[in-house]
Design a protein around this nucleic acid. Structure first.
Lengths: 230, 230
DNA sequence: GCAAATCTTTATAAAATCTTAACGTCGCCG
DNA sequence: CGGCGACGTTAAGATTTTATAAAGATTTGC
């Protein structure tokens, strides 16, 4: 997945700065808004993955922003507010907020809650569109745990599958013997390189049986193997 | 949707009572557990919609319970804990918790957070919930709890039925032994894999007796089983 | 409490997979 | 040219995993 885009709606420049700095340091993309109106419009134009929303905005009330956004999107909204009354929390949550953090808050906690939200998002996406890898006629459906070659299902043993995934997840990169054996078997037992060669042979046979033109796996003598991007 | 089932894992009887009374007053169904072990096994057997989890349990640490449950389920977990340190919150959230409430908490806020969680669940379910499943000559009527094969009703025992539903709800996906046993039986007791094999054999016999051509269930050696989409 | 149905356990043969070792090829270098 | 090292290929044996039957244990219905 790409870096998530986070919309920060906060009028206080110092708080906004704190949040933005934190996000930047953790490699999130972000856009900011300084008022409720601007927040709602930014949400519409940028379609962010997550919204961080302050309730005490200069123009419209934060709860109104939540309702407005919820009118057409289910983007997760994490409220960050100075109001710590129960009634404020309840109003915001019932309006459609997903989480509520009271100021002063710990940036670490904010990040953890963002991660939790992200996790849920990732699951929801994977349910509808399972993550697949494609390269030439090769297709790996990670969620289903199946591999297809030119549409035909390919039967792989569990080690072969792990090996192929490892290569696929590093397409174009040369992987050393040590790296591969360490990842497929537990520890890097030296003698496994012989096994690795055998598995590479069977994998190649399976991948290149249909069409001998294409070569998915390349060997780099003295170093390791590499899947080429077709 | 039916009333959601909520699992309450809390050792302190007074707190447990407060929560349960609140849930009851708001027409939720619930089950309770007084320890981490019990909580994990209740989660497996009852498959609740939401889990409320205290971290300070008498046996295993709450974070361990989270990890255990997350091994096979994505059930939303709301942590309710006396520990208010940031690090505790972060650990719990990163282990897989969805929300974190510190004691003493307001029951109204708890209810609001449950509602927020429910809202998300409802959205996720609405995407993929129909009352009947069809695949090839196989038909499962979830509402009626009946299974048909080429129009003929098929008599299945309750475990066989659970197993078939699990496979059906994940058509095309390879399900690990651990995942299956955890979902059909309680926790993943190692020896259940032997039982699983026997049930798979009987299920297959029933499904493939009529027409030996079609193979609904595929075994992935060393991994698990998978229902193929026909 | 009995009989039938269901579930669990155990045993064994068959199948699939993994490891190991042997042998052949290729390119390199003295 | 011949030895050396790295790799590919093959096949046999060891190991693991699975299907299936059948017996014992448990639950359910009556």
């Amino acid at each position: 997945m790409n870096k998530p885009l986070i919309l920060v709606v906060e009028d206080d420049p110092s708080v906004r700065n704190l949040i933005v700095t934190t996000l930047k340091a953790n490699e999130y993309n972000f856009v900011t808004a300084e008022s409720g109106e601007e927040g709602a419009s930014q949400a519409a134009t940028h379609n962010p993955d997550i919204i961080l929303l302050d309730l005490g905005l200069p123009d419209i009330d934060g709860v109104e922003v939540i309702k407005q956004v919820r009118g057409w999107a289910i983007t997760p909204i994490i409220v960050i507010s100075a109001r710590s009354d129960d009634s404020d929390k309840i109003d915001a949550l019932d309006a459609g907020a997903d989480d509520y953090l009271t100021k002063p808050f710990s940036v670490e906690e904010l990040l953890a809650r963002i991660r939790a939200t992200q996790r849920r998002l990732a699951y929801m996406n994977s349910a509808s569109s399972s993550s697949v890898f494609e390269n030439g006629g090769l297709k790996i459906d990670y969620a289903a745990g199946c591999v297809y070659l030119d549409g035909e299902e390919l039967h792989l043993t569990s080690i072969e599958y792990k090996l192929l995934c490892l290569l696929a997840q590093n397409v174009g990169k040369v992987l050393t013997h040590k790296f591969i054996t360490a990842n497929v078997w537990g520890s890097s037992w030296d003698n496994d390189i012989a096994s690795l060669r055998v598995f590479m042979a069977t994998l190649r046979k399976k991948l290149e049986s249909a069409d001998s033109e294409r070569q998915y796996i390349q060997t780099h003598i003295g170093v390791g193997y590499r899947m080429v991007r077709l």
